[in-house]
C-alpha cells in the first residue's frame, strides 16, 4: 500500500478506496489504537494519581490499586471503544443494506483513530499544566463510611476550578478530534460496507452526534 498518514487524515476517501483492493489486515489499525491507548493510559495515570491522593488515607495501598486500575482501564478501554464504534457503525449499516465484513469495519475504524492520538497527546499536555493546580480534597477513613460525604468530596474534586477547566478543555479536544475521526469513518464505512456517502454519513453521524451531544451535556452539568 503506497499511502501515507496524511492520506488517512486529509484524503480518507482515496485512502480507503485504495485499501479496499488489498488484503484485510488489522495490524496497523491495532498499532494505531495501541498508540492511542498508551497516550490515554498516560493521561489516566495523571488523573488516577489525583484520585489516589484523595483516598490515600482511607485504605493502605489503595493508591497503587487506583493507579493500576486507571492505567489498565485506559489501555483496555481504548480497544473496547474501538470494537464498540466499529460494532455500532456496522450494526447501523445493516439498515442501509451494507455489505462487507466486520473485520474490514474494524480496520477502517482503527485507521480513523489516528486523529484521536493527536487529541490525546494535546489532552496529556493540558493535563500536565492543569493537574498541579488542582486542589485534591482528602477522604478520611471515617468519611469513607458515609456515602454522602464521599459524593460531596468527589463533587468537590470535580468542581475544583482547575479540574473544571481541564475537563472542559479535554471535552472540546475530544469533540474536535472525534469529529475528525468521524469524517474518516464515514469514508471508511462507505468503502468497507459499500454504502452511499449519505448512508455512510448517517451510519457514522448518528452515534457520533449523539456522543458529542452527550459530551456537551456533560460540560453543562459539571
Amino acid at each position: 500500500m503506497n499511502l501515507s498518514i496524511t492520506d488517512i487524515l486529509f484524503r480518507p476517501d482515496a485512502f480507503f478506496g485504495t485499501m479496499m483492493n488489498e488484503k484485510e489486515s488489522l495490524k496497523i489499525p491495532a498499532l494505531i489504537v495501541l498508540a492511542g491507548s498508551i497516550v490515554a493510559a498516560a493521561y489516566g495515570y495523571l488523573i488516577g494519581g489525583l484520585t489516589a491522593k484523595m483516598m490515600a488515607s482511607t485504605v493502605p495501598g489503595i493508591e497503587t490499586i487506583i493507579t493500576i486500575s486507571t492505567i489498565g482501564g485506559a489501555l483496555v478501554g481504548t480497544f473496547i471503544f474501538w470494537i464498540l464504534w466499529a460494532g455500532i457503525i456496522y450494526a447501523l449499516s445493516f439498515a442501509f443494506k451494507g455489505l462487507g465484513s466486520f473485520s474490514r469495519m474494524l480496520q477502517v475504524v482503527g485507521y480513523g483513530y489516528l486523529p484521536q492520538i493527536l487529541g490525546s497527546v494535546i489532552t496529556l499536555i493540558a493535563a500536565t499544566q492543569y493537574i498541579p493546580k488542582i486542589t485534591v480534597p482528602t477522604l478520611s477513613s471515617a468519611a469513607m463510611q458515609d456515602p454522602a460525604m464521599i459524593e460531596q468530596t468527589m463533587k468537590a474534586f470535580m468542581h475544583d476550578p482547575a479540574m473544571l477547566e481541564l475537563t472542559q478543555i479535554t471535552s472540546l479536544i475530544t469533540i474536535v478530534f472525534l469529529l475528525w475521526s468521524a469524517n474518516i469513518w464515514i469514508f471508511g464505512a462507505k468503502h468497507a460496507r459499500q454504502l452511499s456517502p449519505r448512508d455512510s454519513a448517517l451510519c457514522v453521524g448518528i452515534p457520533v452526534v449523539l456522543y458529542v451531544l452527550y459530551l456537551i451535556y456533560n460540560i453543562g452539568v459539571m
Binding site: 486542589t135 480534597p137 460531596q152 463533587k155 468537590a156 474534586f157 468542581h159 475544583d160 476550578p161 473544571l164
Partner: peptide, 10 residues
Amino acid sequence: ISPAAITARN
C-alpha cells in the same frame, strides 16, 4: 478545609 468549601465557591 472541607470539600464543601470548594463546592460552595463553584
